[in-house]
Design a binder for these strands. Structure first.
Lengths: 232, 232
DNA sequence: CGTTGGGTTGACGATTTTCAATTCGCGTGG
DNA sequence: CCACGCGAATTGAAAATCGTCAACCCAACG
């Protein structure tokens, strides 16, 4: 049995554009990797030779300034495709947040796939278009929202995008990344993120003391905050 | 002679993916529009029925919060393609900055083009990939740069991206948009933008009193500022 | 010649950052 | 089993950058 044929996330990824019969080709042109937390997948500015499809875990994408300031531009989880660029080099870096599994494609193989499967290209266009819409939403957050609104938006987005019903708890939000990562994603400092989360707890909008998971008590108030209504 | 065949910006736009013989089809499926400043091209959240290719002038793209706060996510000038979305509605708004000319495509015609011309889709993927890279750069600016660094980055980007050698002046940067637009693009207030530009003038990094055009005296110092080196 | 819209400048205030101290969580080893 | 140590997170006080409010300037235009 060929690996890609039994891939459990195939229908969530770009790979669903490939026919069953041709998955053999796909399996040959890709390689499955399992990576520990905080592994560098992509080095900012290095030659763009490989592309990745995340099959488990979460990857952080970021850009940095010479003095070390960093902005995380997104978190890529199951199904996401990484590494596209027009220049010959990556314009961003990528590191694993937790333990991550990826399928790695090398450039020549990817170009063959693109040439042979119009559907594959169609899927990529859709994915990149989606990422662009998310990026625009994030620009609104970074440019115009207060700290409280940013944290509320972040928690809400994770609640909606990630059902996370593994535990019995209602409205549980998992936060696999550290406070540093959250801060670098929201354009804040870790202190401000920490203080803001504490404030939301004080206001009974969220609850739970676990650093990597909280529970939302009032999704509607969180939603109100995220879209800028004072209080809620 | 068919309109698209003589389009002077054809080779700068997605339309270059279409053969000469087939441009007749393209001309039929698109309509040329000339629009005065501050015309709404796309209403945020409305049904996505039309797509635009800018052939002259500058368009601003933005997202807003319910209370009116606005973030301009980018300026689209000659050659840029607007309106792609995966949802049925636009996730952003678009307005003309100055007098703008666009080719408008309606959705059914665009889908026909996409189906018939793989090259067209390839070009779109490249353009969206480019826009995503720009968006990531802008997220770094919005999340991590100071006011001075933001303004420096903005001026530098416009200097590099827009040669603007129409006038004899060296390193002239044209700023067709208002201070409000610049502020909403950089995640600042108009007062901070104004003060920062004045400060750059005081420091002899730029010169010129015209509100819609300045001259860069020291591109290298501007470059240094934009990438975060204190002074330069 | 007054009005209007856009831009600049100043004084003050507030949100967020910075700096610093403490606590928490968790794996390691005595 | 518990003490230790280290990184991560929290909390507090002080500082700074940027925003708010307000006055003023300037050019275009009817």
């Amino acid at each position: 049995m060929h690996r890609c044929l039994v891939c459990e996330i195939r229908d969530q990824s770009v790979c669903r554009a490939i026919d069953d019969e041709d998955l053999v080709v796909l399996a040959k042109s890709s390689k499955q990797l399992s990576l520990p937390p905080n592994t560098t997948l992509i080095e900012e500015g290095s030659a763009a030779t490989a592309f990745f499809n995340v099959t488990a875990g979460t990857v952080k994408l970021f850009k940095s300034l010479p003095d070390g300031r960093r902005q995380i531009t997104g978190f890529a989880d199951v199904g996401h495709f990484l590494g596209l660029t027009n220049a010959g080099t990556y314009s961003f870096g990528a590191e694993t947040v937790d333990t991550v599994q990826v399928c790695r494609f090398m450039r020549p193989q990817l170009e063959t796939l693109l040439a042979d499967y119009p559907q594959f290209e169609r899927r990529l266009l859709a994915e990149v278009t989606d990422e662009l819409a998310e990026a625009q939403e994030q620009m609104l957050l970074l440019g115009r929202k207060t700290a409280r609104e940013r944290v509320a938006s972040f928690l809400l987005a994770r609640m909606i995008h990630r059902p996370c019903q593994t535990t019995g708890e209602e409205n549980r939000v998992s936060l696999p990344m550290t406070r540093v990562d959250i801060a670098d994603y929201l354009g804040l400092t870790i202190e401000t993120v920490s203080r803001t989360i504490s404030a939301l707890r004080r206001d009974h909008i969220i609850t739970g003391t676990d650093h990597h998971g909280i529970r939302v008590l009032s999704p509607s108030r969180l939603q109100g905050l995220a879209s800028g209504q004072e209080n809620a």
